[in-house]
Design a protein around this nucleic acid. Sequence first.
DNA 1: CACGAAAAAATTTGATCATATTCTGGGCGA
DNA 2: TCGCCCAGAATATGATCAAATTTTTTCGTG
Lengths: 231, 231
Amino acid sequence: MNLIKKTAQKAPKSAADPPVHEQVYQKLRAQILFGEMAPGQPVTIQGLTDSLGAGMTPVREAIRRLISDGALVFQGNRRVSVPVLSPADAEQLIFVRKSIESELARRAARHVTPALIAELEAIDAALDSAIATGDVSGYLQCNYQFHTVLYAQAQAAVMADFADRLWLRFGPSLRVVCGRFGTQNLPDRHKDMLDALRAGDPEATAEAMAQDVEQGMDMVDAVLSEQAEKS
Amino acid sequence: MNLIKKTAQKAPKSAADPPVHEQVYQKLRAQILFGEMAPGQPVTIQGLTDSLGAGMTPVREAIRRLISDGALVFQGNRRVSVPVLSPADAEQLIFVRKSIESELARRAARHVTPALIAELEAIDAALDSAIATGDVSGYLQCNYQFHTVLYAQAQAAVMADFADRLWLRFGPSLRVVCGRFGTQNLPDRHKDMLDALRAGDPEATAEAMAQDVEQGMDMVDAVLSEQAEKS
DNA sequence: CACGAAAAAATTTGATCATATTCTGGGCGA
DNA sequence: TCGCCCAGAATATGATCAAATTTTTTCGTG
């Protein structure tokens, strides 16, 4: 019988906690989505095992998932990094986003409830406050949450899933946009969208979403073109 | 010095071979895409380590990737299985496929070359032969290849990537369709598409693709509805 | 004598495996 | 029928091996 207790009786294990690889995935995903990792930044397994304090296998699994999501790219040799969007990539993302997300908005509007509108209003208020204080991370999170909550109402799991993947692709670039233009000048078609939702008008909601997507992605495109000609 | 050579000098290592987890991923992917696994069928790690002769870690990574692709589903408890499409899922897939794949066809038509047409004609001939002989697996592979080759010409990597993910979702169900209707009655708009490509008409190509997608997915939908009311 | 390129050693990182631990689900007995 | 136990499967760790990059060393040339 060993006298040393193994890591303090293995921690209390507070109820059903998600597996480690899931926790690692969520953490990395948030870091990518909310701009804590810059486009082009290399991602190493061993670096993450250290910074996240997790084992090697869970980290590997999380990285594979994120590569499949398009949130990370495998660079041929064994390196993995945060993707750098090309203008051509951005153009395609605009097309797919407008198609899928405006349809999601249309469907969400068909199932709109007062509770949904209240929730979206709260998120939008937090978003405005983040813009006012220049809180880039807060802005990105609120913006993402606004879209996610809306799409959850569309009762279209497959399409919402695809929309999520789209966001993972341009997430890191959105941070760059904020760094370039500041939070003041960011587009905000959320007010139009809320009006359309209150009116129960699916077509107007879809149109507002298409506008929101187009404006946001145009800024991404502008930054990417700027970077392209700089090099 | 140990007299026993370590596993026969570690095998010849024939040039640059892909890592094991990549091989496992490709094999599993093909099995799912071409209907070797039935919807609902459970997938176990240990079962795959045995049948594929690979270690446990590569198999885990491949499964994670496929879950992220939507080609497998994680069932909450630690079970993984081939997904069963609901009619609602199929309806959403139809919408997204028509949107993305017809656009890919349009763009491919803008970059059409004689070599592409020749390649597609060859694939379509093989497809017809598979239909004639009732070779379901051959039909599925040719059909997939036709679309993949066409999309590669569109010079739109992001959209082609999304299209690939869509195929992974309904692949298993396509096999069921073939089992239900036989290969004789499957839709084939490839002839129209080839005509439009020869004419260099992007709009007609996109339209033919939309028709092809719609017809194919309608059959999937029919089988799913049939199964739904049976239960 | 100094500078640069190529080769080689060393370090860092990724891939795989064997093994220990934990959890889920079904069977058995009360 | 309900609860407990056990078999089996999944999760997670650390060790080990292989590959790639980086650094260092060496050699040749201006």
